[in-house]
Amino acid sequence: MKFYLILFYLLFISIICPLSHASDFTAHIHGEAELMIAIDKNVVEIELIAPAASILGFEHQATTEQEIKRVNEAKKLLKRQANIIQFSESTCESHHAEIDTGELLVNGHHHHEKNSHEHSHSISHFEIAVHMAMECQRGEALGAVSIKLFQHFAGLERIRLLWATSTEQGSVILTPQNSEISF
């Protein structure tokens, strides 16, 4: 399903967005994040990419105990689906959550959730990436979706949301005042 998200993302940018603005879409802008939602029957996958500053308030390797604690607390929050997204018409259960903090944690602090010997080259060192797969009771009839990230991360001002189902796709900019969409 991760392939489906990546394919959707690339196709959306290359076909829907004007070519002159495609590179702006993936720019690393503090206060912003990108969230992609792919829905295929009862399976929902989400991918979140955010500058560390948007989530943590800083964008350098965590060196103090307070910074290390902040990174670990953010990872713990991002592992729970209810802290990221809630659906009004369906109950979903997370089957897989992967949080990549890049090189934010060093000196013996484990920075990858799935394999400590693996090094991610897919994101820059000071971004946080979350991939989550969920099984939903009524995946194709999710109704309204509420994004909960703004409640947990004060540095987050805008989320660029891309979404796709088997029958439609779209995009929207979400803010703390407007954090719900309907499918």
Results as ranks from 00 to 15, higher is better:
residue 2 K to T: 06
residue 4 Y to S: 15
residue 4 Y to R: 07
residue 4 Y to C: 02
residue 5 L to S: 14
residue 7 L to M: 14
residue 7 L to A: 15
residue 8 F to P: 02
residue 12 F to G: 00
residue 15 I to F: 07
residue 17 C to G: 06
residue 19 L to M: 03
residue 19 L to F: 07
residue 21 H to Y: 07
residue 22 A to F: 03
residue 23 S to F: 06
residue 24 D to W: 11
residue 25 F to C: 10
residue 27 A to G: 08
residue 29 I to G: 06
residue 30 H to A: 11
residue 31 G to S: 10
residue 31 G to V: 03
residue 38 A to T: 07
residue 43 V to I: 11
residue 44 V to Y: 06
residue 45 E to P: 04
residue 45 E to T: 06
residue 52 A to S: 14
residue 52 A to I: 11
residue 54 S to Q: 03
residue 57 G to D: 05
residue 63 T to R: 09
residue 63 T to K: 14
residue 64 T to Q: 04
residue 66 Q to T: 14
residue 68 I to Y: 00
residue 71 V to I: 09
residue 71 V to Q: 00
residue 73 E to N: 01
residue 74 A to M: 04
residue 75 K to G: 01
residue 77 L to M: 13
residue 77 L to E: 05
residue 78 L to M: 01
residue 80 R to W: 12
residue 81 Q to W: 00
residue 81 Q to S: 04
residue 82 A to D: 07
residue 83 N to F: 08
residue 84 I to S: 01
residue 86 Q to G: 04
residue 86 Q to N: 14
residue 90 S to E: 08
residue 98 E to L: 08
residue 103 E to H: 07
residue 104 L to N: 02
residue 105 L to D: 01
residue 105 L to T: 01
residue 106 V to C: 11
residue 108 G to R: 05
residue 109 H to Q: 11
residue 110 H to C: 05
residue 112 H to C: 14
residue 113 E to G: 13
residue 114 K to P: 03
residue 116 S to H: 06
residue 117 H to T: 08
residue 119 H to L: 08
residue 120 S to W: 04
residue 121 H to Q: 14
residue 121 H to S: 14
residue 123 I to P: 01
residue 124 S to E: 03
residue 124 S to I: 04
residue 125 H to V: 06
residue 127 E to C: 00
residue 127 E to L: 02
residue 127 E to H: 04
residue 128 I to V: 04
residue 129 A to I: 09
residue 129 A to P: 02
residue 130 V to F: 02
residue 131 H to G: 10
residue 135 E to K: 15
residue 135 E to G: 12
residue 136 C to K: 00
residue 137 Q to L: 15
residue 138 R to K: 12
residue 139 G to M: 08
residue 145 V to E: 00
residue 147 I to P: 00
residue 151 Q to L: 15
residue 152 H to V: 11
residue 152 H to G: 05
residue 153 F to W: 11
residue 153 F to N: 01
residue 153 F to R: 04
residue 154 A to E: 15
residue 155 G to S: 06
residue 156 L to T: 00
residue 158 R to Q: 13
residue 160 R to P: 01
residue 161 L to F: 10
residue 162 L to M: 15
residue 163 W to R: 04
residue 164 A to S: 13
residue 167 T to M: 12
residue 168 E to I: 09
residue 173 I to Y: 14
residue 173 I to M: 15
residue 174 L to Y: 06
residue 176 P to A: 03
residue 177 Q to K: 12
residue 179 S to K: 07
residue 180 E to D: 05
residue 181 I to G: 00
residue 182 S to Y: 01
